[in-house]
């Protein structure tokens, strides 16, 4: 019968209309400014820099190696190396950035910088309310705006941050153990040198005297 398809379709619409009052599968929207969507852990928007401890300048993990600057597809990262060095988490002296700028009006949030970073320094943020009235200065983020504490990173990406924390802790312990072992070895070597010097001064005792008869 002509029109039966139409009626069937209208029945479908009616089903959806009434369904939208009680069926959660048919209510997919959220009332945005009042009600915010919970974003999944993997979610990413723009990059930020992680720092350890309290001081964003001192604890910054970035070593200004410029790998992210090279790999960034849109070339939106700009890094200037500082001339001085500071110790990193294992105590090794590393460079750090004097300038670290990201032009987030150019950044496309692909996450390649976070992926290639060998120092777990640059990570992807989850902020999304970034609109601003000033198109130029407010969208060019400097080191001060980009640096965020490790606790924040742990809050937005708990799994990844947990793994990194464990690894860094292990590295630190290993480095400490190595430093300790090195120090001991050094001390032993020094002692040996001293012993040797003392022994060479005095003639070595004959085997008969050393080994008990």
């Amino acid at each position: 019968m002509l029109g039966s398809g139409l009626i069937k379709g209208l029945a479908q619409t009616a089903k959806n209309f009434f369904g939208s009052y009680h069926d959660p599968a048919r209510m997919v929207t959220v009332e945005y400014p009042e009600q915010k969507r919970v974003v999944p852990e993997a979610s990413r928007t723009i990059p930020f820099l992680v720092y350890d401890g309290e001081d964003p300048e001192l604890g910054l993990r970035c070593t200004a190696c410029k790998i992210c600057e090279v790999e960034c597809p849109t070339q939106c990262i700009y890094i200037v190396k500082n001339t001085s060095k500071k110790p990193d988490h294992v105590g090794k002296m590393q460079f750090h950035p004097a300038t670290f700028d990201i032009d987030i009006s150019v950044c496309m949030g692909c996450g390649i910088c976070a992926e290639v970073c060998p120092f777990d320094s640059i990570k992807m943020d989850q902020v999304f309310e970034l609109s601003t009235a000033d198109r130029f200065e407010s969208l060019l983020l400097h080191k001060q705006q980009l640096a965020k504490p490790n606790s924040y990173f742990g809050k937005i990406h708990p799994t990844e941050a947990g793994e990194i924390d464990i690894r860094r802790e292990q590295d630190k312990r290993k480095a400490e153990a190595k430093a300790k072992a090195d120090a001991e070895a050094k001390a032993r070597a020094a002692a040996e040198v001293q012993n040797a010097a003392a022994n060479s001064a005095a003639p070595p005792p004959s085997p008969q005297t050393v080994t008990p008869a």
Binding site: S4, G5, L6, K8, Q12, T13
Partner: peptide, 8 residues
């Protein structure tokens, strides 16, 4: 059901 049989 909504579309495939729809006469329009």
């Amino acid at each position: 059901a909504l579309l495939s049989g729809n006469e329009i």
